[in-house]
């Protein structure tokens, strides 16, 4: 009875809270939509901040380069090592280069790059813009007759959209190198044989799908980081939330996009 009473007592407030949360979720979706729309509206209009785009590309590349090199190489080595026993059971060790390259080129390289970039670059963009928002630097740009959205958001989103596919390509080659070193050490396969076998099963659609994925991931990481930072509130707490939100949301979206793009690429095969 007491339980029923307590449920009756709290049900309306819980319902109201749920209603508020649903409303807040749809409001956020609308804001994100408006933010993306604003990006596409402003990105093609002058002034073009070329210097800032180049600077941001450099920042994105430098921030992730070491970690991506290390992670890419380790992924290549580990994946090759882990795959060997299964292939040995079927007497198909010679397929190892093909298996490694398919896994790396089609899935691992863009995904690993995107996840690292979401952590390193996404959080950094979220924190940087969030900090600029709460210290009124964005307002200062606005009142001086300049376009902060163009200078801060468009440049960073362009930079991540350009740089992350480049980093993904680099990750693929580093991971393949890791795979080659492991195969070479264990099976004594030469570099040219490894590469020949590695690229043989891959088609143009595979490269294109992988590149498309990296472009979409790059755009997502940039736009999510910028959205979280640009709309940051509540002082230093807001900056932390913006950085955290940028990473969590970007990673979640990257996985969803991975599934969708794999599905779409499948239709073209």
């Amino acid at each position: 009875m007491a339980t029923i009473k307590s449920i009756t007592k709290f049900a309306p407030s819980r319902f109201a809270r749920l209603k508020d949360r649903v409303a807040a979720f749809f409001l956020m979706l609308y804001r994100v939509y408006a933010f993306i729309l604003r990006f596409f509206k402003e990105v093609f209009l002058p002034p073009y901040e070329f210097k800032e785009v180049v600077r941001q590309c450099y920042e994105v590349g430098v921030r992730s380069f070491t970690l991506i090199s290390l992670t890419g190489f380790i992924v290549g080595v580990i994946f090759t090592k882990q795959s060997r026993p299964s292939l040995t059971d079927f007497g198909a060790t010679s397929w190892l280069p093909s298996l490694v390259s398919i896994a790396i080129m089609k899935a691992l390289a863009p995904l690993v790059t995107a996840l690292i970039a979401a952590g390193k670059v996404g959080s950094s963009i979220g924190a940087e813009l969030g900090s600029m928002r709460v210290t009124e630097q964005i307002d200062a740009m606005e009142v001086s007759g300049t376009k902060p959205f163009k200078f801060l958001v468009c440049t960073r989103v362009i930079a991540t959209t350009i740089t992350i596919p480049l980093l993904a390509t680099y990750t693929a080659f580093i991971a393949l190198l890791g795979g080659y070193l492991n195969v070479s050490q264990n099976e004594g396969t030469s570099y040219s044989t490894f590469m020949e076998q590695a690229f043989e099963p891959l088609t143009f659609v595979d490269f294109w799908a992988s590149l498309s994925k990296a472009i979409v991931f790059g755009f997502t990481i940039g736009i999510v980081g910028c959205y979280q930072g640009y709309n940051s509130t509540k002082g230093t707490e807001g900056v932390g939330k913006a950085a955290n939100g940028a990473v969590v949301t970007a990673m979640f979206l990257v996985f969803i996009e991975e599934v969708l793009i794999v599905q779409i690429a499948g239709w073209f095969r």
């Binding site: 210290t135 009124e136 630097q137 307002d139 200062a140 740009m141 009142v143 007759g145």
Partner: peptide
């Protein structure tokens, strides 16, 4: 935006681009 060029705004915490 054009009007803002004619107005100077000095912020409480200076708001310099750090």
């Amino acid at each position: 935006q054009e009007l803002r060029i004619r107005i100077g705004f000095s912020f409480q915490n200076s708001a310099l681009y750090d």
